[in-house]
């Protein structure tokens, strides 16, 4: 039992495979091999690494495999440290907390053709999609993989390369391919998607600029920031009793900011109805979004799971 709420899915590392070009393939599973929370093709998860880093990786197995998450990680020596930690420190049996899967493309019945453009390790988000489409035969697809020389995940891609579903372009031999020629004609029955280095994404955006937005999909290596209310602003909490200052990011709840700051507050419903997380406030302009406090109580209390602040500073009785 922990004193903090459990906020991640507990997984253990059950497999680590070398997959070429500095890439390792990690398999994560529930400690009892229970089914894991489901995901859409192309979805990603956050890994909460033992050293405190949180990193996002695409799931590259098929959604129908519901008892494991497979991620492919390229060791980036000059990266921010997540891939190095995974490559150098993580072993079989290690426990890693992960987020619920997010994103991905729900294959739609009216889409007849998918064209995926991947640069190097950018192939990972398309792998689960390709496998899913291969099995369900729901639509045509071609995956253009652009690499300098060595193909990452060669063993995993092998059969799809043989079938001609994956076409490898080696820039060291043939130069950069013409993206416009690869994506071909647009249309409401076609979806094109791209994942790769920023320069590749830029040319892709140019090539598809005139396409309908619903037909174009882009995956960036850096996780897109979560969708937050455009009007949300960051603010600072001052804790009157302890003297601590805690920063609340735009769109973050006060509860989450307090928990991140190591302050234990009770919470239950996280939706402003149960009353568990009531905290006194002393100064500021709280925005109450709960459904239990009376106008009179709101003069002195707020519910930290849903309340916000209209002023830059909010002083709490903590």
């Amino acid at each position: 039992m922990s004193a903090r709420p459990i906020t991640t899915v507990k997984t253990v590392v059950t497999g680590i495979e070398e997959a070429g070009a500095g890439v390792k393939l990690f398999t994560l599973a529930d400690p009892d091999r229970w089914e894991l929370p489901p995901f859409k093709p192309g979805a990603h998860i956050d890994l909460h690494l033992p050293n405190g880093l949180v990193r996002t990786y695409s799931l590259c197995n098929e959604p129908a495999e519901n008892t494991r998450y497979a991620i492919a990680v390229k060791r980036e020596a000059d990266g921010r440290g997540g891939s190095r930690a995974l490559h150098d420190e993580i072993g079989i049996g290690d426990v890693i907390g992960v987020s619920l899967p997010r994103g991905g493309i729900e294959p739609q019945a009216h889409i007849a053709r998918y064209v995926f453009l991947a640069g190097g390790i950018g192939v990972t988000p398309f792998l689960s999609m390709a496998r899913h489409l291969e099995r369900t035969q729901q639509a045509e697809f071609t995956l253009h993989l652009i690499v300098r020389e060595e193909v990452p995940l060669a063993a995993q891609l092998g059969s799809l390369v043989e079938q001609g579903r994956i076409i490898v372009h080696r820039t060291s031999r043939t130069g950069r391919p013409d993206l416009a020629a690869l994506v071909g004609e647009g249309g409401s029955e076609t979806v094109v998607a791209c994942c790769g280095p920023e320069s590749m994404i830029e040319s892709f955006e140019r090539v598809t600029a005139a396409w309908p937005a619903a037909s174009v999909h882009i995956e960036r290596f850096t996780a897109p920031s979560p969708v937050i209310d455009p009007d949300a602003k960051p603010f600072t909490l001052s804790l009157a009793r302890s003297g601590a200052e805690i920063h609340v990011r735009a769109g973050q709840t006060i509860l989450a900011a307090l928990q991140e700051g190591g302050i234990d507050v009770a919470a239950s419903c996280c939706g402003g109805i149960c009353g568990a997380c009531k905290v006194g406030w002393i100064e500021g302009q709280p925005v109450h979004r709960d459904r239990i406090l009376s106008p009179y109580e709101r003069e002195r209390y707020l519910m930290v799971c849903v309340a916000g602040s209209d002023a830059e500073r909010l002083v709490l009785d903590l």
């Binding site: 899915v9 507990k10 529930d30 229970w34 089914e35 894991l36 929370p37 519901n66």
Partner: peptide
């Protein structure tokens, strides 16, 4: 039942 938080109920 489910043995851990977030896992699908079986």
């Amino acid at each position: 039942l489910a043995p851990r938080a977030f896992l699908p109920m079986r």
